[in-house]
Design a binder for these strands. Structure first.
Lengths: 232, 232
DNA sequence: TTGATGCTTCGGCTATCATCGAAGCATGAA
DNA sequence: TTCATGCTTCGATGATAGCCGAAGCATCAA
């Protein structure tokens, strides 16, 4: 007996246009919120919720809860590989797809996420802190090391005492919207962003509602000196 | 704008259980007839016809007409690769599938296809003829070489004059049912099969309706001496 | 020719499933 | 607390598509 669903089961998940749009939106590795995926697929949040539950049950995507948002990402590279394969088959039979263009590059580079720095530079900063053992990260848990405390005091005039808060962690990994990686949240993330502003290294964009963060020329140099990865 | 179907289009093709069963049946590379695929999927020929048309339009399978049969095979290895990927994703989420067991081994080994030899030995014979340049093959077109004519006369007492027929080609590639490869049809294929019978190398199985061809012990040796590939 | 087999097309039935409105939770802010 | 936001569940609707019976071609055999 042919038995159960097997490949038809997982293929039918990808077979729905709305779900396929969501999955392709996740193809670049970024994790997106449920609402963003709904908009990406052109459907209402209710419908998207139903689709996301199915995709998750099918093992194609994994959720990560973040405040009142719910981020979804592809389970792993195997899923992305199969999607690429399907795209390849579709492309050669003439079923091309118009790729949704890249978003605002400034938004990708640096922006405000709640009250801390996100985007390319935000991810780069946490990477740098981790590599130099100024913080220790286990999944979403981030801990400031003694070496890290000294670093903050010396270079940014941030004392560890300032960071304690009754209901908010000092450090926290926050999933980045434009990158697939984490950046630094928590009271430390907020304090650092505030310090960057005070030092006139960066400022939020003047446009109302914009989340873009503009770095000054000297600010960018200072930032790169502290957290640079040598690429810039 | 999200534009058209893209991966959802091709994924939905695989997403239907009946079509998925057909495709998995084709995964081993063999080409199957429409009716066989219908049986494999557990549906009526009409329904299967509709599915096969869609799969063909989607570029997943390719037809090869053969008499009143219509053989289908996967378009290429890319398709098989994507199917394997999907199977992998399905397997790890617990959606295993019971593989359909192998068919009658005797039928696979040697059988009558219309009036010529098919099965493992039939494919092996054409392979041998091709390797030794006794025939030249381009796709389904097969041509007997001068060297081939001498070979036939010497070893099987088949003269080229016997083979001409007003409406039937001397040589023709015929798609094998148990192998994915071609075997030799045409008046030459028929003449060779007839000669094997006359020489008492082989005989059709006594069971009525059976297409199995039984080789005698000496017949198998003689056959292997002429067309062997060294494996037996 | 007549009959048989393999496959396709047509028409209608049915069931599945995507979709959205409305309401219900959960989290965070004031 | 009260309000707002993000997401989910429930219920009903509507359209897509798989399915089969019947009939129509095409191929092969006698």
């Amino acid at each position: 007996m042919k038995s159960g669903p097997d490949i038809a089961m997982v293929a039918s998940l990808v077979g729905d246009p709305a779900r396929a749009n969501m999955l392709t939106a996740l193809m670049n590795g970024r994790a997106l919120t449920a609402s963003e995926l709904a908009q990406e697929a052109g459907i209402t949040p209710q419908t998207a919720s139903s689709h996301l539950a199915k995709l998750e049950a099918g093992g194609l995507i994994e959720p990560e809860k973040q405040g009142r948002h719910r981020y979804y990402r592809l389970t792993d590279d195997d899923v992305a590989g199969v999607l690429e394969g399907l795209a390849g088959l579709a492309a050669r039979t003439g079923h091309m797809r118009v790729r949704t263009g890249p978003k605002d590059p400034a938004l990708r580079r640096a922006r405000i996420c709640y009250d801390h720095l996100a985007g390319d530079l935000g991810v780069q900063m946490l990477d740098s802190l981790r590599e130099r053992h100024l913080v220790r990260q286990k999944k979403q848990e981030i801990e400031l090391t003694a070496e890290g405390e000294r670093f903050l005091t010396k270079h940014l005039q941030i004392s560890p005492d300032m960071l304690s808060h009754p209901r908010r962690p000092v450090c926290k990994a926050c999933l980045d919207w434009s990158e697939r990686r984490h950046h630094l949240a928590g009271t430390l993330g907020a304090a650092m962003m505030q310090r960057f502003t005070e030092l006139k290294w960066a400022a939020r964009d003047a446009t109302p509602g914009s989340r873009v963060v503009n770095f000054t020329r000297t600010g960018e140099k200072q930032f790169a000196a502290l957290f640079g990865n040598g690429k810039d």
